[in-house]
Design a protein around this nucleic acid. Structure first.
Lengths: 218, 218
DNA sequence: AAATAAATTTAGATATATCTAAAAATAAAT
DNA sequence: ATTTATTTTTAGATATATCTAAATTTATTT
């Protein structure tokens, strides 16, 4: 059985891997978890002893099979709990992250099975993110980040890849939610911001925001 | 904010107080929490520094106002979660304790408010135990323990005061559940066991079991 | 290629929560 | 009222998870 701290490290490594780092650096984990690089080094040593990661000093870290399985399972629990909080308890999608961060560490496979069933086996969480299966796979979807989308196309917002209150509240302000149709015009070279329109209203979206918007090309 | 361990100590002290110890002893806490008396002494010192208990060395401990408020709130959360697990997720009443022990430590007042509403503000948990109010009071009910009930009377099982799998499974075997009507005949002096009948079937109930059965006198 | 900068690890501390063994205080028995 | 037994506390260790500061390794510049 793993501690909360260990689980959070595994989850952070998974998250950074998905975001593109094949070899995850100590510093990026420290940033992700709001802790010091020294603490990360300490923990990586421990996770290696527990045979959950592949870690080469000064080089970086990756999850091994068992570590990935644990991390994906926590992600599954996190997203199922978020779904529960929004669908059943009437939380807003921008309020659920912190509570789900706690709930994801509850240990009971039966609990998650029953929760999954209670929610009618949802495939996506309230942010549009795919929910990993019980078997530990993350179903792939054909989404593109707004920051990387082709210019002069249309699309639908399928989800967000960041679960931070300030970000989600900003989206509310922009009137961007899951299912919103958008037209993409062009990308500015200088700051990589994107010009789009929502309901015929033109807007400029910063790269920082565009990086976390998942779009389905129409 | 308190740690899980601190919360568990406060809960244990509350539980033992309710069971009748006005001054709770170090040893009884150790037994309740399956730990050593030394650990309990250590923790009591800490809880006193945090001003959550009234502790006199070698004499015993009691909750002060703030400590009681925290402990009652954990009890409320525990019982609400158990209700959720049984009513919504189809757990059996003898399966929910361990998961609720984890869930009770989740920190979010809003979560509990919404859970309470989602469950239609239940007054009793699946074991028949009263759920403390949001304001921190434990509503009193006119129940008597089977171990202390008057002889030659009738009663209804209102609940149990112990949430242990082996105990609840034994009750299932005895066909005792909440709402079961029983006739009480007499109590044996020697072992304090009680002779009762359920559906006209005579049975002898040990004091150990009778101590945890809450009965409403008819 | 040497010097500088950045990233990472180690060393040494601190805080929490636990333990065993020994000491001290209280309760029970003779 | 002593002695004995029980309960409780303290002392000293261990394990987890964190930190700051110093040392080391790797990357980047000049």
């Amino acid at each position: 059985m793993n501690t909360f701290a260990e689980e959070n490290y595994l989850k952070a490594i998974l998250s950074l891997s998905i975001q593109g780092e094949e070899l995850v650096s100590t510093n990026s984990i420290a940033t992700e978890l709001n802790t010091s690089a020294a603490s990360v080094s300490d923990m990586l040593k421990k996770l290696q002893e527990k045979k959950l990661i592949i870690y080469k000093k000064y080089k970086g870290v990756a999850l091994n099979k068992q570590g990935k399985s644990i991390a994906v399972n926590i992600l599954r629990k996190h997203r199922l709990w978020e779904t529960f909080l929004v669908k059943k308890l009437d939380f807003n999608w921008d309020e659920v992250h912190d509570v789900a961060e706690q709930l994801e560490h509850i240990k009971s496979e039966e609990l998650i099975d029953k929760l999954d069933s209670f929610l009618y086996y949802p495939k996506f969480d309230p942010h549009g993110e795919v929910i990993p299966t019980k078997e530990g796979t993350i179903p792939q979807t054909d989404r593109v980040l707004l920051s990387e989308i082709e210019e002069n196309t249309n699309g639908i917002v399928l989800g967000v890849s960041l679960d931070e209150t300030s970000f989600l509240q900003y989206l509310n302000k922009l009137k961007i939610e899951i299912g919103t149709e958008i037209q993409i015009f062009d990308r500015i070279d200088f700051d990589k911001s994107v010009n789009i329109s929502i309901n015929n209203k033109k807007q400029n979206i910063s790269n920082e925001v565009a990086k976390h918007l998942l779009i389905k090309n129409k």
